[in-house]
């Protein structure tokens, strides 16, 4: 599963609630990923630009291990989304209702790539700044895209948000 959203929306917090291991962070060099996908064989001039990637994992049963990848969503990291979503069961875009714009790049990418996704509004201190219908309109997501409120610090709540995405993925898996 991919956990996406702007800086400070609660991605690392959410991954930590579900993961069996302490959340690990790695640096993904974005220019390298771009180069690899663009078929360029030389080293790009700026190889040190990186974006943080969190991950955690949880055993689902004795054969399946689910990985959670958390990353900030930014337009210019579009190529990285492609790497992350290949093989993903679905994506949860976390938004803060006071800063909805930050969720837009991720929503836009998942919509265009056909990745099943849902949007989770992290209810910082229980406050929702807009109605759900307004949020749906502002993010321009369709009626069948799951839109839930949750608390990134609460394990059950995070799992429920993931389940909403997975049920949607299942409906789309044919």
């Amino acid at each position: 599963m991919v956990i996406a959203g702007g800086f400070g929306v609660g991605k690392t917090t959410a991954v930590a609630q579900v993961s069996e291991i302490p959340v690990l962070t790695t640096e993904a060099p974005i220019t390298e990923l771009a180069a690899a996908l663009d078929n360029v064989d030389e080293v790009p001039a700026k190889t040190t630009t990186t974006v943080a990637l969190d991950f955690g994992c949880v055993a689902i049963d004795d054969e399946i291990k689910m990985y959670l990848f958390g990353t900030p969503g930014q337009d210019r990291f579009g190529f990285m989304w492609r790497d992350l979503t290949e093989g993903a069961l679905g994506a949860l875009v976390i938004v803060d209702s006071r800063r909805l714009d930050d969720g837009y790049p991720a929503v836009d990418y998942f919509e265009r790539s056909g990745t099943p996704f849902g949007v989770g509004i992290n209810l910082f201190d229980g406050v929702l700044s807009h109605d759900l219908a307004d949020v749906r309109w502002a993010l321009a997501i369709s009626e069948d895209t799951p839109l839930v409120t949750f608390d990134a610090r609460d394990r059950r709540s995070v799992i429920d948000a993931l389940l909403a995405v997975l049920r949607h993925s299942l409906g789309r898996s044919g």
Binding site: V58, A59, I60, D61, I64, M66, L89, I159, L162, L163, L166, R167, S169, L170, S173
Partner: peptide
């Protein structure tokens, strides 16, 4: 697989 993940979670 998604069904199993849903059950497991």
């Amino acid at each position: 697989v998604i069904e199993r993940v849903i059950r497991g979670l």
